[in-house]
């Protein structure tokens, strides 16, 4: 089937929602820690990461709204869509769990996010390249921090090692989706707008492998990977998050905030 311009615009809208929804949902999850982290420096660092991700969401969803051309802005997309319209990765909607689980989720995401943004800097769409360059600077720091903490806690005490290993075992089956392409990805990659998801695999494997080895952690044996988030089929967790996040906008639809 030949791809008409209309279809490419649709794919672009979908692709931007995938980016913006993933940063939104992860930013929200990270912000749930506010005031509850194990040390003050972590409270500050987590707020920083959440802030960066929310800022990136404003850019990605802002552009998505523009591309769609139906008058929806970033807030409308974030606060007025229901679960099935969200396009985030399943990994980022996983609940926080303990602090080790939160950190491991962050690391597995950052290890994809950073090279993915690097590749997007070369996007044929200048607006995307510009956002990617801006976000990439922030995400380089996220990755440095999360990789460092995974190493230190993996190779810390018996308990910290065990907690990090458990987190890795639980989260691993949600990592495959980042590198799995569907028709939308293929259309966008074919048009030179994004890098093909599977092209990011070698960089992710190498980085994750190196960090986990230094952390004395091992990926689980199982190869099964969950998928569906990018197409709008989510876990039960996302609906609860949206219930909380969207409450004011839903309860008072005429209000300006």
């Amino acid at each position: 089937m030949a791809l008409a311009a209309l279809d490419l615009d649709q794919a672009l809208f979908e692709g931007l929602c995938r980016l913006g929804d993933s940063t939104l949902v992860l930013g929200h999850r990270v912000s749930e820690w506010c005031g509850h982290a194990p040390v003050l420096e972590e409270d500050i660092a987590l707020a920083n990461v959440a802030l960066d991700l929310i800022g990136q969401t404003q850019m990605w969803l802002g552009l998505a709204g523009e591309v769609e051309g139906k008058g929806r802005d970033a807030d409308t997309l974030a606060f007025r869509r229901d679960v099935w319209d969200f396009r985030n990765l399943l990994l980022v909607e996983r609940p926080n769990g303990d602090f080790g689980h939160t950190l491991m989720r962050q690391f597995l995401f950052d290890a994809w996010h950073q090279p993915m943004l690097k590749a997007l800097e070369g996007s044929g769409d200048a607006r995307i390249a510009e956002i990617a360059a801006k976000a990439g600077k922030e995400v380089a720091y996220h990755l440095e921090r999360s990789a460092d903490l995974v190493i230190r806690l993996g190779d810390g005490t018996t308990e910290s090692h065990q907690r990090m290993q458990t987190a890795l075992d639980k989260l691993w089956p949600y990592t495959g989706e980042m590198m799995m392409a569907d028709a939308t990805d293929q259309a966008l990659a074919g048009a030179g707008i994004i890098a093909a998801p599977d092209s990011l695999r070698p960089a992710w494997d190498a980085l994750v492998g190196e960090v986990l080895t230094e952390a004395t952690l091992k990926p689980p044996e199982g190869r099964y990977m969950h998928k569906g988030g990018k197409q709008g089929t989510h876990s039960e967790h996302l609906g609860h998050m949206l219930t909380e996040m969207q409450w004011l906008q839903r309860a008072y639809p005429d209000a300006k905030w």
């Binding site: 939104l24 929200h28 912000s31 749930e32 506010c34 005031g35 409270d43 500050i44 707020a47 920083n48 959440a50 802030l51 929310i54 800022g55 969401t57 404003q58 969803l61 970033a74 807030d75 974030a78 606060f79 909380e244 996040m245 409450w247 004011l248 906008q249 209000a255 905030w257």
Partner: peptide, 18 residues
Amino acid sequence: ITRAPTLERKAILLAKVQ
């Protein structure tokens, strides 16, 4: 923070608490 009504309000509140 998790119920802030817009992305901007959420960012401002996060920055403040930080």
